[in-house]
Amino acid sequence: MEFATTLLIAIGLAMDAFAVSISGGAALREGRIRWALIIGALFGGFQAGMPVLGWLGGATLAGFTEAYAPWIAFLLLALIGGKMIVEVLQGDGEVAPFSAGNAATLILLAVATSIDALAVGVSFAVLDAPILLPAITIGIVTFAFCAGGVLLGGAFGRAAGRKAGIAGGVILVGMGLRILVEHLFN
């Protein structure tokens, strides 16, 4: 597979994680550079690892990824986004899904945004294509997009205040709905 094709696949896969990074970064009040590196590494790592898992599982995972992955992604994103909205509306508006002590949420977000990368790995296995270079490319691109997204979201969050937390939650729920609708109608 040509590198340009791999790069386009990587950019496409990084878009969901990028949107989550922007919405999470918008709710951060401090430590944006630290969180940009953490989120970039976590999301990039999951995005790089999932295609490898899909490639290793090959045809065995094909049925699962086609049938259940969109539902899992929808549920995770809707629950996390809904929780963000509720916390902003009920609390003082200082909710951040990237905040310290929230490792479970971070892992769930990383999994939810990288499930499509699992399906890409299955596709690579079916095509009998190598996976190492594409996985590394996907991870690096996702790292860059997510680190930049946290910083971009942080700039937006300073300007928008409490509304940024609500917008972030709405974005997550909307992403989950988009994934589910695409699955149901395609």
Results as ranks from 00 to 15, higher is better:
residue 124 F to M: 14
residue 44 G to D: 08
residue 91 G to S: 12
residue 146 C to F: 06
residue 88 V to R: 02
residue 67 A to Y: 04
residue 74 F to R: 02
residue 163 K to S: 11
residue 70 P to H: 03
residue 126 V to C: 05
residue 117 A to Q: 00
residue 42 L to H: 04
residue 176 G to S: 03
residue 154 G to E: 04
residue 137 T to H: 04
residue 77 L to C: 10
residue 15 M to G: 06
residue 67 A to H: 11
residue 171 I to K: 02
residue 183 H to F: 14
residue 107 I to D: 11
residue 83 K to M: 13
residue 183 H to S: 14
residue 165 G to S: 07
residue 56 L to S: 09
residue 2 E to F: 10
residue 182 E to Q: 14
residue 110 A to K: 00
residue 1 M to F: 08
residue 35 W to I: 05
residue 8 L to G: 10
residue 61 L to T: 08
residue 88 V to H: 00
residue 154 G to Y: 07
residue 30 E to R: 15
residue 65 T to Q: 10
residue 135 A to V: 08
residue 21 S to P: 02
residue 142 T to C: 14
residue 133 L to F: 14
residue 143 F to L: 10
residue 143 F to E: 01
residue 38 I to C: 01
residue 161 G to I: 09
residue 128 D to T: 13
residue 95 V to M: 09
residue 111 V to D: 07
residue 123 S to T: 12
residue 78 A to L: 12
residue 42 L to Q: 04
residue 89 L to I: 12
residue 180 L to M: 11
residue 49 G to I: 06
residue 140 I to T: 11
residue 34 R to A: 15
residue 75 L to H: 07
residue 47 Q to G: 03
residue 159 A to K: 09
residue 88 V to Q: 03
residue 96 A to D: 11
residue 67 A to M: 12
residue 106 L to P: 00
residue 136 I to V: 15
residue 46 F to H: 02
residue 177 L to F: 15
residue 100 A to E: 15
residue 84 M to I: 09
residue 83 K to H: 13
residue 36 A to G: 13
residue 73 A to V: 05
residue 144 A to W: 02
residue 165 G to M: 00
residue 137 T to Q: 04
